[in-house]
């Protein structure tokens, strides 16, 4: 079943002055349980495409369906709620809340979903165990290494059991050891939790691990390889 269905996606900036086509008519389907990397050189449109798939940005043309719902036509207020329930995000700079503990950071998403305390705590601890950082539950993000922080960010993204997880350059700030650990964990989550991952990256280590690699150049898909 297609989790994401993008049809003829176009994103043009400065439409009224000098138009810049960041994305130029992309058609794509991503199935449930995929571990997909969107790759390409800087400025090829990876992040823009990911933002459109995640409902953070609107396409100039075309439609995006996530879990059968056309998110392109959704008003902002509904889109926020839709993202909360269906999409997990992992950012390059981790973007954890510095004043909360690692466990609270993971619980926060479930709290927004109005899940009860017991469920939140159990799920957060379960994820921290899976990430191998259960002993860091009550520390703050600043007390962890970059790799560990990114693992908390992945746990946060998985907390609400979303339809898929969008990870924008998740390994860009990590050393090779942390990258390997993170990728192993994400691959494991992909297998065990059937979590669908979509990365934007130009990190070869991520590309090597991906089951499907979609290459963009100048806003168009130039190759789509499933391994």
């Amino acid at each position: 079943m297609s989790i994401i269905k993008a049809e003829n996606i176009t994103k043009t900036y400065n439409e009224s002055t000098i138009p810049v086509h960041a994305i130029n008519g992309i058609n794509l389907q991503i199935e449930e349980g995929e571990f997909t990397a969107i790759v390409g050189p800087s400025g090829c449109g990876k992040t823009t495409f990911l933002n459109i798939l995640g409902g953070l940005d609107k396409a100039t043309k075309g439609s995006v369906e996530v879990a059968g719902v056309n998110i392109g036509e959704m008003p902002d207020s509904k889109l926020i709620d839709f993202r909360l329930k269906n999409i997990g995000f992992v950012f390059q700079a981790y973007n954890l809340i510095p004043v909360l503990t690692n466990k609270e950071n993971i619980e926060f998403i479930m709290l927004l979903q109005k899940k009860d305390k017991k469920e939140r705590e159990t799920r957060a601890m379960e994820l921290l165990e899976q990430m191998g950082i259960a002993d860091k539950a009550n520390l703050r993000p600043s007390e962890l290494s970059g790799g560990q922080q990114q693992r908390v960010a992945v746990a946060r993204a998985l907390a609400s059991k979303p339809a898929f997880i969008l990870a924008d350059e998740p390994t860009a700030n990590l050393d090779s050891k942390s990258t390997a650990t993170l990728l192993d964990i994400m691959a494991k989550m992909n297998q065990e939790e059937k979590a669908t991952f979509v990365f934007s990256t130009h990190d070869q280590r991520v590309i090597d691990k991906a089951k499907r690699v979609i290459t963009l150049e100048d806003g168009v898909v130039i190759s789509d390889v499933t391994r």
């Binding site: 953070l56 207020s77 926020i80 709620d81 909360l84 995000f89 700079a93 973007n95 809340i97």
Partner: peptide, 16 residues
């Protein structure tokens, strides 16, 4: 600013 952006991206409503 970035943190607030993240909160809204992950689904924290404007009212919150």
């Amino acid at each position: 600013y970035r943190e607030l952006g993240m909160l809204m991206a992950v689904g924290m409503g404007k009212a919150n």
